[in-house]
Amino acid sequence: MILHITLKEKIFSLFFPIGLSKMVFSLLWIVFSIFVLMSGIIIAVLVIVWLERKISASIQQRIGPEYAGLLGTIQALADGIKLFLKENIIPAQGDHWLFNIGPILVLMPVLLSYLVIPFENDAILADFNIGVFFWIAISSIVPLGLLMSGYGSNNKYSFLGGLRAAAQSISYEIPLALSVSSIVLLSNSLSTVDIVQAQSKYGLFSWNLWRQPIGFFTFFIASLAECERLPFDLPEAEEELVAGYQTEYSGIKFAFFYLAPYLNLFVSSLFVTILYLGGWNFSIPFLSILNNFEPIFLITGINDVSRIVAGTIITLIKSYLFLFISMMTRWTLPRIRIDQLLNLGWKFLLPIALGNLLLTISLQLFLL
Results as ranks from 00 to 15, higher is better:
S33D: 09
S33N: 10
L125G: 04
G203F: 03
V180T: 09
L98Y: 10
K347V: 04
L344D: 09
L185C: 13
V180K: 00
A243L: 07
I338E: 13
G69M: 03
I313W: 13
T247Y: 00
F217H: 08
E52A: 02
K22L: 10
F220A: 14
T273M: 12
L224M: 15
D339C: 07
F119V: 07
D339K: 06
V116I: 11
F271D: 11
G102P: 08
N188Q: 09
K201G: 12
I195L: 08
P295R: 00
S189R: 07
N188R: 08
T332Y: 06
S139E: 12
L147I: 07
M327S: 05
G102Y: 07
R307N: 15
I174T: 13
W135L: 15
A44I: 09
L275V: 10
V106H: 06
R229K: 10
Y262A: 11
E52Q: 12
F12Y: 15
A44K: 00
L85R: 08
P109A: 02
P109L: 02
I214Q: 07
Y245Q: 06
R330A: 05
G244W: 00
V184S: 01
Q212G: 14
Y249L: 01
K156L: 13
V47N: 04
Y320V: 05
L77E: 09
L359G: 05
E228W: 01
F256D: 05
G150H: 00
V196D: 03
K201S: 14
P17C: 03
G279Q: 03
P351R: 04
G345W: 04
K8A: 15
A165W: 11
I74E: 13
V47A: 14
L368H: 15
F35Y: 13
E52L: 00
A177E: 07
L144N: 03
